[in-house]
């Protein structure tokens, strides 16, 4: 700051604190709602300060049947979400790493053709080709499976581009030196390339984990079996059932549990998260 007037400093912090409060308000209300009992949450105005039932609600949400009528416990949904997020992020990273490796370090016919084919996927978000993709997955018998949840989403132009960029900045002499040392392609990939891209992989993982965890439309379409429900998509069903028997404390606890893992990832790995975000969008 150039000027050092106390009044300016005060205003600066005031605005920022208000901003933080505004951004945090929805989650505060969620937490408060998740800490009261069912009865209290049916009386307007709803409370603004935390109650004492947080742990009870947490237990009931995680291990109880969740909402009446819904047979899938929330821990199962959390597990499904975790499985989907991990499969999507690890899958995306793995196939992007190897295809970027092939495109940068090998000269082979149709190299550019493959490159453009991967590029095309950038232009086709799942939302715009949802119906025919659903048909393909149905025909392959992948409905209601972890494979069906993750594989159609793991082709990634952005990740391939990013790794291509990373590989291009690694000096050519690394490869030459490794070849003189006697390392073949895969050995070079494991011993040199992977360790050198470690932070990029971690940064990308943070972004992709969030992307995978937060998938909504896709799991909604391809899972009909309640055992395959993910936590994020369960919110919709809960809100629908809330119209008959509103258990807002449980709904909000579920919402809280659904957003907790990605928030922890963002806050805990902030540096990697920022790096990943700025790298993939360039």
């Amino acid at each position: 700051m150039v000027e050092n007037r106390p009044i300016m400093t005060f205003i600066t912090h005031l605005v920022l604190v208000l901003g933080v409060a505004m951004i945090a308000l929805p989650i505060w209300i969620t937490l408060v709602a998740a800490s009261h009992d069912e009865i209290r949450m049916l009386q307007a105005p709803i409370p603004m300060l935390p109650g004492t039932h947080f742990i009870d609600n947490l237990k009931q949400t995680l291990w109880g049947a969740g909402l009446s009528g819904d047979q899938t416990p929330v821990w199962r949904m959390l597990f499904n979400s975790l499985a989907m997020a991990m499969m999507i992020s690890v899958g995306k990273i793995a196939i992007s790493l190897i295809s970027a490796f092939a495109i940068v370090y090998f000269k082979f016919p149709f190299r550019m053709g493959f490159f453009w084919m991967i590029f095309i996927t950038l232009m086709l978000p799942v939302e715009v080709r949802i119906l025919p993709t659903f048909e393909v997955v149905a025909n392959l018998g992948m409905l209601n499976s972890y494979w069906g949840l993750s594989i159609p989403l793991i082709a990634s132009a952005t990740a391939t581009f990013m790794f291509r960029q990373v590989f291009l900045t690694i000096p050519d002499e690394m490869l030459e030196s490794a070849r003189i040392d006697g390392a073949g392609p895969m050995r070079f990939f494991w011993d040199i390339l992977l360790p050198l891209s470690r932070t990029n992989i971690a940064a990308l993982f943070v972004i992709l984990f969030i992307y995978g965890w937060n998938q909504y439309l896709w799991p909604l379409l391809i899972t009909t079996d309640t055992d395959m429900t993910t936590i994020v998509m369960s919110i919709k069903q809960m809100l629908e059932s809330a119209e008959q028997s509103p258990q807002w404390n449980i709904i909000m606890m579920t919402a809280f549990l659904a957003m907790l893992p990605p928030i922890l990832v963002v806050v805990g790995m902030q540096k990697l998260f920022v790096q990943g975000l700025t790298e993939t969008d360039k």
């Binding site: 000096p171 002499e173 690394m174 030459e176 030196s177 490794a178 070849r179 003189i180 040392d181 006697g182 390392a183 011993d191 040199i192 360790p195 050198l196 470690r198």
Partner: peptide
């Protein structure tokens, strides 16, 4: 022959040491 099979060693201008 592949570089590795020529029984040679090379010192590069930028040394090309593996940084990790």
């Amino acid at each position: 022959l592949e570089p590795a099979d020529r029984d040679i060693a090379m010192v590069f201008q930028n040394y090309a040491l593996y940084p990790h």
